[in-house]
Design a protein around this nucleic acid. Structure first.
Length: 317
DNA sequence: CTGTGTTTACGCTTTT
DNA sequence: AAAAGCGTAAACACAG
């Protein structure tokens, strides 16, 4: 680990694994998903170390995306052409780094095939139909409840205790936080039904703000920033570089075993005290972070129906 | 052709 | 010591 006190660590490798870096990038974006190129960009923008030897580390990063179940692939819409898919975090992968070390995970996030997955594999068309139906149900429910997202960043729906302050452990403000502490005793409530409490719902609702009015981003993005980011005065969306293109079919491509609600509760709340910044980040000099505007472009999309419902999460070690 | 994605393999480090 | 996690290289397929 680099020692504090230095003002630049540009030539040093950041103390984060590729998984951490990738998750950081994804989590930093309001849409909670990014194409590969944007993940590259995020990392290079913040960590000068990765502005060199790009072929090497980008290959490693792609390997991690494919290899690790904590990343799910989301296809583009047909009318949003471009190379590659969007990458998102599996909503239940939050406890991978619960020991606070982003260099090495305590355990690997792994999915386990369930009965419904067998069904999905044996009858892909049925699975697809199921997912579509779930998407419609959610859309209907959300449309009925209003045009604004109830809460933006924090899996607040169905979460009993830390409504507006919880941040996904992969949120950059948590990952980069150097004095990472676990307050404890603030665990998530058991995940509830898919339509109400499952984190992915909220996460991917966040991911597809076009479902709502274009003002949604302005309304909801800073929700959790109010307390944690006010000192920096930087809205969440300012750290999202791209994602103008959004997926056509909000269904993860990766084979998605079923996740049982409550099987993998998200970790406890982690205090965030660092601002997101596109500037080069030094793990040891977070104070250098300053505001830089790079507005996201809200665009159309659908809600992810149910990668969560089709997956089973198993932490192996 | 280039970028993206998947997979296998290997060596190293860290944890159990 | 064994297992697990990680980083890297490389081969290959595919799509834009």
């Amino acid at each position: 680990m680099p020692r504090p006190g230095r003002n630049t660590y540009s030539d040093q490798k950041p103390p984060y694994s590729y998984i951490s870096l990738t998750a950081m990038a994804i989590q930093s974006c309001p849409e909670k998903m990014l194409p590969l190129s944007e993940i590259y960009k995020f990392i290079m923008d913040r960590f000068p170390y990765y502005r060199e030897n790009t072929q090497r580390w980008q290959n490693s990063l792609r390997h991690n995306l494919s290899f690790n179940d904590c990343f799910i692939k989301i296809p583009r819409r047909p009318d949003q052409p471009g190379k590659g898919s969007f990458w998102a975090l599996h909503p239940s992968c939050g406890d991978m780094f619960e020991n606070g070390s982003f260099l090495r995970r305590r355990k690997r996030f792994k999915l386990m095939m369930m009965a419904s997955e067998h069904l999905a594999q044996s009858k892909p068309s049925d699975a697809a139909h199921y997912l579509q139906q779930q998407a419609k149900l959610r859309l209907s429910a959300l449309a009925a409840s209003g045009t604004h997202l109830p809460q933006m960043s924090g899996y607040n729906i169905g979460v009993s205790h830390q409504p507006s302050t919880f941040k996904h452990p992969f949120a950059i403000e948590n990952i980069i936080a150097r004095e990472y502490k676990m307050p404890g005793g603030l665990a998530f409530s058991t995940m509830q039904s898919m339509s109400a409490g499952y984190p992915l719902h909220n996460q991917l609702t966040t991911a597809w703000p076009h479902m709502y009015s274009s003002s949604v981003m302005d309304t909801v993005a800073p929700i959790s920033m109010a307390s944690d980011y006010s000192a920096y005065g930087m809205p969440l969306k300012s750290i999202c570089y791209g994602a103008q293109s959004l997926p056509a079919i909000p269904v993860p491509i990766k084979p998605t075993p079923t996740s049982m609600p409550g099987l993998s509760a998200l970790p406890t709340h982690i205090p965030a005290f660092l601002a997101n910044s596109p500037q080069s980040l030094s793990p040891t000099s977070p104070q250098t972070a300053t505001s830089q505007s790079s507005p996201a472009t809200p665009s159309e999309t659908l809600i992810n129906p149910a990668s969560s419902a089709m997956q089973s999460v198993v932490s192996v070690h």
